[in-house]
Design a protein around this nucleic acid. Sequence first.
DNA 1: ATAAAGATTTGCAGGGACTGCAATCAAGAT
DNA 2: ATCTTGATTGCAGTCCCTGCAAATCTTTAT
Lengths: 219, 219
Amino acid sequence: MHNEGLRLRKKQQTRTALADAALRLVAERGLDQVTVEEISAAADVSPRTFFNYFATKDDAVFGTMLDGSDRIRETVTRAPADRPVWDVIWAAYREEAVELESDAERLKLRMAVCNRNPSMLARLVESGSAAELALAEALAERLSGNPPGPDGSPPPDGTHTPHDPAPEGYSLLLAVTAGSALRVAMMRWALGTGDESLIALVDEAFGALSTGFAATHHP
Amino acid sequence: MHNEGLRLRKKQQTRTALADAALRLVAERGLDQVTVEEISAAADVSPRTFFNYFATKDDAVFGTMLDGSDRIRETVTRAPADRPVWDVIWAAYREEAVELESDAERLKLRMAVCNRNPSMLARLVESGSAAELALAEALAERLSGNPPGPDGSPPPDGTHTPHDPAPEGYSLLLAVTAGSALRVAMMRWALGTGDESLIALVDEAFGALSTGFAATHHP
DNA sequence: ATAAAGATTTGCAGGGACTGCAATCAAGAT
DNA sequence: ATCTTGATTGCAGTCCCTGCAAATCTTTAT
């Protein structure tokens, strides 16, 4: 039997040491004013080891925010079938927001970095796109009227019961819009005065999208 | 007097030669299977010259899609003040879509590249974010009830007439959502069967956002 | 026509990101 | 204590990208 307790602990340790150092240094000096060599030195490992943990420098700075793609998919597929779709998505993303706000310190630093460096903002979107894609799949399933299998997996091909004419397009729009709403909320939260909770801002954005933009006139 | 006709023509020539070669090669082989050296060779210039035209390899592949940030801002600030905001944004982005669809060949190649390479998808977002930011500014102006100056420039600080409690947040949401809608439409258009026009898909997305998502129930 | 002025292209040297390989080192099992 | 396994590290090498200065080509002035 393999125990390996100490090994795992040390791995997690150096991983977070690297990530922390990367985020801190980049937040201070800017992305291209920090070298991998410096990050590694701050974490007391060799530069080569850095790349055993992160594929790129960006990855270390940004980590994998919103790796909750599985969680989101779960939440959506498990939700009662008669509940409005947007409510389900809203609830799922609010869950994520709660998770994110629990690490407020790190999140604020990350958003600050995103604001200074456009390439990092792109990274932010990229990190959310995995979740969006997963959500879009789950939504297409749901909107096409196919109940998920007991394990939540999609049914095999050929068993689809066509219902909505174009669920792919609409569900993709839903998913991408939801991701954008979360991003806007995070931006406002991180750059704001700090007296508003992330959840409140998320609710505000999702609420606006729920109502639609047609109602917005200039007075 | 400076004529310089031939010079400019040659510059444009090599620029498009490089961009075309880059897009073609990357679409064929994938982003990291193409070196700057190969692109330069295909355009008959030295590798060093490549970087006189493009700051990064990605730039050559992607060019500056949606450099219409100024055009969008113009359209929005010039629109009659009593027109619904979302209609104005919709019209502005539809204009952009027309422009984009006029270069259908290139756009489809670019979207195909974005689909294979996540980092290029990030690039796509980045290219649109400039326009979104400009739009958000213009919207904040409009929603706060301040008429633009004769040149369309924002009035100096201190002259604001507060009207909407939080125009920054709402206008950012509007702008980012509009950008996302365009992106989804482009994706569907480039990956679809090809019998739908980009404009139609843009209208579909913007229409859905106009109505809002509250109406979407599962039957 | 020819030279001066100005802009573009190119080569060279170098820094930094990232990878594959092989040697070394430390933790866990026997 | 020793063997096995996985993590760390150094090294060589590729590619992206930049600053600098020489070389080349266009335009303009004489």
